[in-house]
Amino acid sequence: MNSIDSHLPFLIMSALTLGSALVVVRVRNIVHAGFWLLPCFLGVAGLYALLQAHFFVVVQVLIYVGAILVLMLFALMLTQDVMNPNKPQTNRMSLPIGVFCIVFAAGVAAILTGHQWVNSNAVILPANVQTRQLGQALIGEYALPFEIASVLLLAALVGAIVLAKSEKEPAPLPLPTLAALPDSKPE
C-alpha cells in the first residue's frame, strides 16, 4: 500500500491544481481569479480521491466549491468595479517575493522529500467504514474540538454580521449604502 499506481490521474490532478492556482494569483481580472479557484479546488478534491479520502472529496466539493467559493464570487462581483483590471494587480515587491517563494518552495519540497518517512502498511478502510469512524470520533473522543469549531463558526457569523451591517444610527457622516456604491467609485 505504499504507493498509488495511477500516475496519469495524479499528474492531471496536480497540474490542474497548480496551474489554476497560478492563474488565481496572477490573473488581472479579479472575477476570473475567483472562477479559476473552481478548477483548483476540484483538482485538490481529485487528489483527495487518489488518497482514498472519500469523505473529504465530498466535503471539499460541497463546502469549498459550494459554499466558500460562491461567497467569494458574490463579494468579487459586488466590488469588481473598484479595481481597474488593466492596471497591474500586484505590488512593487512582486518580483523579489516571487523569486523568494520559488526558492522557498524548492527548499521546503527538498526538505520534505529528503526526510525518511516510515510508510505504514496498514490497510486503507473502505469509504463507509472510514466515514463511520470519523462520525464516531466526532461525537466521542473529538467531541470538544467539534463543539469548539461550532463556537468558532458562531463567533465568526456574529462578527461578520456586526461588521457588514450598516449603522442605522444617525452617523456624523452619511455612509454610502451599497446601492450607491458604483456611483462613488474612483475612476
Binding site: L144, P145, I148, V151, A155, G159, V162, E167, P172
Partner: peptide, 22 residues
C-alpha cells in the same frame, strides 16, 4: 486544541478591532 483556541481568539478579535464602525 491549541490551534482551535488561537483561531477562536483571533476570529473574535478581527471583528472587535473593527468595531468602531464610524
Amino acid at each position: 486544541m491549541l490551534y482551535l483556541g488561537i483561531e477562536l481568539t483571533s476570529m473574535c478579535l478581527f471583528t472587535l478591532v473593527g468595531f468602531a464602525k464610524r
